[in-house]
Write a protein that binds this DNA or RNA. Structure first.
Lengths: 211, 211, 211, 211
DNA sequence: TATGAATGAGCTTTCATTCAT
DNA sequence: AATGAATGAAAGCTCATTCAT
């Protein structure tokens, strides 16, 4: 017995919970498995979180925060639009390789039918996206690259969709496998990520550049 | 007591199971709820499917088949490339509005970490996509619209990603909400679907047409 | 596995639950112990009763019903007031010896602080007493034995108090022991019950008859 | 951290434990709630009492002592028999209104089926009663009021029963409600207590005076 | 010596699965 | 062959008790 969960243990708890939830989903994850992974007792989890649901929410929070931080930081004022978008893609690839569970958590929410939980998170998560896209659009305008015949909001939607699928493709077994089918077996090599980023930039430039 | 589950009852079972799994996910769905929805007994489900898992797999199979059929049928030889792609988009929108659970099932697959289930399904599903894309590419070639500087496989991947997100956006609460944030609250009006299809076509034409 | 809990098993379940609750009280009683005593599985209890609380309520109902039936039947129209009261005492003694748990259940409710549970039962239980006392009072009036200087409602209260303590004295270990201290070690002999009834009649006659 | 629980803190602990046990019963009461009520830590309770059970026993002891003290003191040598009995009744009413938990504790003992706890307490408690009744009887004899045809031990038993029910009627929700049904809704007014005492005296005088 | 967080056994409840009818 | 009640393993959660500080 220890006097108190150390800072590390608390972090580990959250990290392990994210893994468990990411792997099994809210319903199938078990609190005792999370406790075991974390080397602590079941009971103590309930000292920190009211119940399994609350732990899940905390995991979402943590994931969303981290994702937000990383993605936001790749869109700096110094970079050009093109550099920013490429930075976003590369950061996504790296982050998803390192913390696949964070994205799987994200993926997991989207299954929930309830407006309360799911939609509440939608707001929270999209607020991050919004910040990023606002920045990108101002860049785009200052660089004079704005296709006039397009709905910028829908194009932003498509862009975000592509990014999101990139996240899943790098973090969920299924999507990774699918990506390999499309893009070849070299999916875990490092150069692959560069190549994919290149192609995605081409795709986006064409889409946004218009004719 | 009935002689045997009729064809209709078996179909209803699958349909209801898809709804239940689509709504709650594998873990949270209950066999007895499925039985109840279907107006049959729990016991008989176990005569047709070894266990809950097997029923789930059958639902995946059924969903994938149906989606495949519908999507394939929207890419006919008679149509031009543009007509085919637009057909794919419109069919996806309609199908997802009518049978959201089919897509949610699809979504559910992607949660599974195991190579057995997930990867097996990846093959199965992508075989369908492959057929479609083979057809599309042959159209593209015959129409002389092939951007030469692009990796066609990766561009196909991006295209499929966009389509997939379209599916989710029309079938999962979370993604629908997100789409509304991007594209406005009119998301359930009929004209909205047309408009979105238009914009998506523009996006794709730019991307594939390149400069 | 049986097709269905037989009528006997259902009765046994209730009976055993009454014993368990009577012995340990609501909080300390365990559902699995009740299942074990009854030779059935835990799960099936939840098919018959929504939860432990509901089972407890059902036990109260059953106890109260039985007590009511027995006590009511000992106050028949044919009997005189004196015979009726004595009948009530003797019936109480016998019933409490045979079904101590029924009275312990009764005793158990009285611990509950909530007006909802406890008071609701108070009404239900006292309705039974009310019927009995109404009958007794009409007998008393017809026999011309009514002390005029007394509050009949309060005297009824005292009488019921004495009867209640009689119940507890015959069904709870503590009260039995206490009765033995007062009335001698012969408390479980049969003649003792007769003697006690005699003395109680004397006590009551004095009280009600006045001087 | 304090040096040692002060006298007051120890008393408060006992007092609060009595309240908690009185309100919830042994099983439902929680040690940490008692600690919280008392402004001390859980751990220290285990320095003073081996376990929850032991604390409960100590609470019983304390309750019984207090009740004994108060009741004994209302039967003083100076008072006549009648004054003493009335004093006992009035003291019971007041005490039960002020310290309902003490009586609920007492009530709680009676639930315990074990000879160890329950019977041991019976002895302890009845020793107190014994002292009181010895005093009362000597008064009765000196006043020449002794009904010769009655078993004095059984009559004492009945008398104590009435007193006990009085205690419960003033301290437990259930019994209070029941008393209101019998004696009217005015049960919490002060004059009510007087009236009830009067009637009880009449009842007892009749019973003991006999014809 | 007091603290109060950690422990983990144990309780209630659910539900996949079985099998007597 | 279908039924649906019974089974019982397993989960979430609580709280008496311990012990590092």
């Amino acid at each position: 017995m220890q006097k108190k969960l150390t800072e590390e243990q608390q972090k580990a708890l959250l990290e392990n919970a994210i893994s468990e939830f990411g792997e099994r989903g809210l319903a199938a994850a078990t609190v005792s498995s999370i406790a075991e992974r974390s080397g602590i007792s079941v009971g103590v989890i309930y000292k920190y979180y009211e119940n399994k649901e609350a732990l899940f929410e905390a995991c979402l929070d943590a994931s969303v925060s981290l994702l937000g931080d990383v993605l936001r930081s790749s869109v700096t004022k110094e970079n050009s639009l093109e550099e920013s978008v490429r930075g976003l893609i590369r950061a996504s690839q790296n982050l998803a390789r390192e913390h696949p569970s964070y994205f799987r958590m994200y993926h997991a929410i989207t299954m929930r039918p309830d407006a309360k939980g799911a939609s509440g998170y939608a707001e929270r998560i999209e607020r991050i996206s919004a910040e990023i896209y606002t920045e990108l659009i101002s860049k785009a305008e200052s660089e004079g690259i704005v296709r006039k015949d397009a709905s910028s909001s829908m194009f932003a939607f498509f862009f975000d969709n592509l990014l999101m699928m990139l996240h899943f493709s790098y973090s969920c077994d299924y999507y990774r496998h699918r990506m390999e089918i499309y893009c070849g077996e070299s999916a875990d090599e490092d150069s692959f990520d560069e190549r994919l980023a290149d192609e995605m930039m081409k795709f986006l430039k064409g889409a946004f550049g218009g004719k």
